[in-house]
Nucleic acid binder design. Sequence first.
DNA 1: ATAAAACCTAAACTTAACTTCAGGTCAAGC
DNA 2: GCTTGACCTGAAGTTAAGTTTAGGTTTTAT
Lengths: 145, 145
Amino acid sequence: MYTIGQVSEMFHLPISTLRYYDKEGFFPQLVRNGNIRYFSDTELEALHVIECLKSSGLEIKEIKQFFHWVMEGPASYPDRKQLFETRRAAVLAEMARLEKTLAMLEFKCWYYDRAIQDGNEDSINSMLPHNLPKDIQALYDKAHK
Amino acid sequence: MYTIGQVSEMFHLPISTLRYYDKEGFFPQLVRNGNIRYFSDTELEALHVIECLKSSGLEIKEIKQFFHWVMEGPASYPDRKQLFETRRAAVLAEMARLEKTLAMLEFKCWYYDRAIQDGNEDSINSMLPHNLPKDIQALYDKAHK
DNA sequence: ATAAAACCTAAACTTAACTTCAGGTCAAGC
DNA sequence: GCTTGACCTGAAGTTAAGTTTAGGTTTTAT
């Protein structure tokens, strides 16, 4: 059993956040002595799941739904599995998006490396296939011609 | 030259967002006829950079700094390069974080797959090295013994 | 000529996920 | 016996990144 201050240190989360999660109903099993909260394995495991789902981009109100399902017992296993499948797909999509962003950032690093060497951007731009923005314009023009 | 409505369609961004970016000073070169905005290559390229930096997790006010540097000319090339390097590192870190999240999500998919087959979680939990939350507790306990 | 469509501004509003505040209880150490 | 530290509550405040509203002008189509 751990107090809120101990859990706060363990998870590097502010105490106020833990209280907020509690108020949102994320620790349905939480035990109190007087009105002091005591966190057990169940709550620590819940925190892992919260962190995981949050990190997958899920909103808090939908995480709430998960804990609602947990309270419903085995009947909700398929719903819970579906949720994790959906989050898995979302994370894969986000990673694909970040790959593209990374490519652009690396291009920009290279670009400014050259610009620093040359003292200007003109020599780079003239040797570049200068149609990066034109791609998108071409698509637009085509659709509206 | 494109109107705000055309750019909105091209980038799938609401018109209100484009006006907001303009108000924030992201289109220092933007030309107006009367008070109607006309977007040229310069602004489309700026939008690409905004999208890229935003997608890298940068806040709008720091993107503003970038455009400030652009207006300062070649003297700020090193600053700009540094910004892109920093964003690159941030994106790599975020991707590493998502890898971990993905692993957890895949574990949970497997877990509920088994739970659905078994009709309960008990048989899974008993065969599991049930020390996932204990890892973190052990660290805490060690530091505070 | 008139109505609809596309543009404009300034200012108020929205939303999520917390965080801060004001005020209070309670056990432990000096 | 008192003060410090760790806990509590409910309510109000914060922040970012837009979005919506209200009211107005200009251009385009019928």
